[in-house]
Nucleic acid binder design. Structure first.
Lengths: 228, 228
DNA sequence: CATTTATGACTGACTAGTCAGTCATAGTCA
DNA sequence: TGACTATGACTGACTAGTCAGTCATAAATG
């Protein structure tokens, strides 16, 4: 429903970029460049505000001010507040998906793979803006089915599938004993999610060493740690 | 800060109740009774609305309408929207805490204890209004430190402590091998939390059998299930 | 100069919180 | 007991303020 016009705007913006290569060598301040920069500024500012206040309580005036832009400018890039929010989530998540797809090929032990992956996840997500985005999606998801759907399709389902593949590999190689685990890859990821939420709600009361917790959890799955 | 006036109202309401015993046998429709009923109606309606729309997007008019009460009445019971939200969370959570405190004495195997407890948790929380409340707290916590603090103090810290005690018992009895688990009772609870969130965000796309997932997770911790 | 892009003052719809007035109930008195 | 008065719970129209979205105008661009 709100899709059409929003897509149109996005398409227009995107369509401009390619020009840079061909006839317009004028780079730094071509219209398309400037437009894209502004869009990015708006997205970043909106991200910050939405995370801090939630969707309903965020004022477009504040986003505009933070982005160094007039309010009207926002409406050159987004149809309305709602579709801005939805597009924002897409924009921020897409590069994450790209990273997921460019996973390193399975070499080494499964445990090392999982450990490297999860360690990286914790470092890049917990306590960062991305972590807050996860919380934001949990918070606003029920009111924005489009956002929840998108997140499920692009991140959750892929993540679950990837984890399942890894678990099955682990079972095949005898590193993981419990065969049922493949039915619930969520168990593998659960502590990481908990850590993200814990961080933003309870860190002040009781800081949580996510990396260490992860280690303990993996010991549970792969058996006691080798002595290293 | 907002405590005083709100408490005052609560105290007044409570103070009336005892009279019922003494001089006024008039029970069903004494003023105090009616007032208490109305307060309950408001709390329930507010719960519903806040869960459905979040704090900022909820209209007091809607709460009033749903509670079958005029808007002004709300202000006889609560100082303002904000402290209403905070009191609401307290009101709904207190009975849960009471239940936690009235835990059955530790008899039988630790696994059975944990299984019974967690099974009960899943049944009473997942897919119910209480589960939504958890999500609501995750959603609004950062903007309501008072709520997050309260929830941590009354529910999370007690829950964690209880789990830790159980884990230590399990270790002492040799049911649990991994001693490090006692350092992160969160791991024990993580899948349950994930299930709560999953339910309210992704159930439509991929329903999750929380009970079964729990079983697999407990197998991980206690070792493979006995044959039953 | 024509066209595209940006601005921000403005509008109108919406809502938290108020308060003067109503009325069912509790208390008092004959 | 019945009638009369006092109380305060309850109401909902109203106020003051907020904010998403618009649009006439200005700046930039080519």
């Amino acid at each position: 429903m709100t899709e059409k016009s929003t897509k149109a705007v996005a398409a227009k913006t995107a369509a401009h970029k390619p020009e840079a290569g061909a006839e317009a060598a004028a780079p730094a301040s071509s219209r398309a460049m400037r437009a894209a920069k502004r869009r990015d500024a708006i997205v970043e500012a909106a991200m910050e505000e939405f995370i801090a206040r939630g969707f309903a309580a965020t004022r477009l005036d504040d986003i505009a001010k933070r982005a160094g832009v007039a309010k009207g400018t926002i409406y050159l890039h987004f149809k309305d507040k709602e579709s801005m929010f939805e597009e924002l989530v897409r924009t921020v998540i897409v590069p994450v998906v790209a990273k997921l797809n460019a996973l390193p090929p399975p070499t080494g032990s499964v445990r090392d793979l999982v450990e490297a992956f999860a360690g990286n996840f914790l470092k890049e997500v917990i306590g960062t803006r991305r972590g807050d985005l996860v919380r934001l999606i949990v918070a606003e998801g029920p009111r924005f089915p489009a956002v929840a759907d998108f997140y499920y399709r692009e991140v959750v389902s892929r993540g679950v599938a990837g984890m399942r593949a890894l678990i099955e590999l682990g079972i095949a190689r005898g590193e993981i004993r419990d065969k049922d685990l493949a039915r619930y890859p969520q168990i593998l990821v659960a502590p990481a999610m908990i850590a993200v939420i814990w961080q933003s709600l309870f860190a002040r009361h009781a800081p949580l060493d996510a990396q260490d917790m992860l280690r303990v959890h993996l010991d549970l799955i792969f058996g006691e740690r080798r002595t290293t």
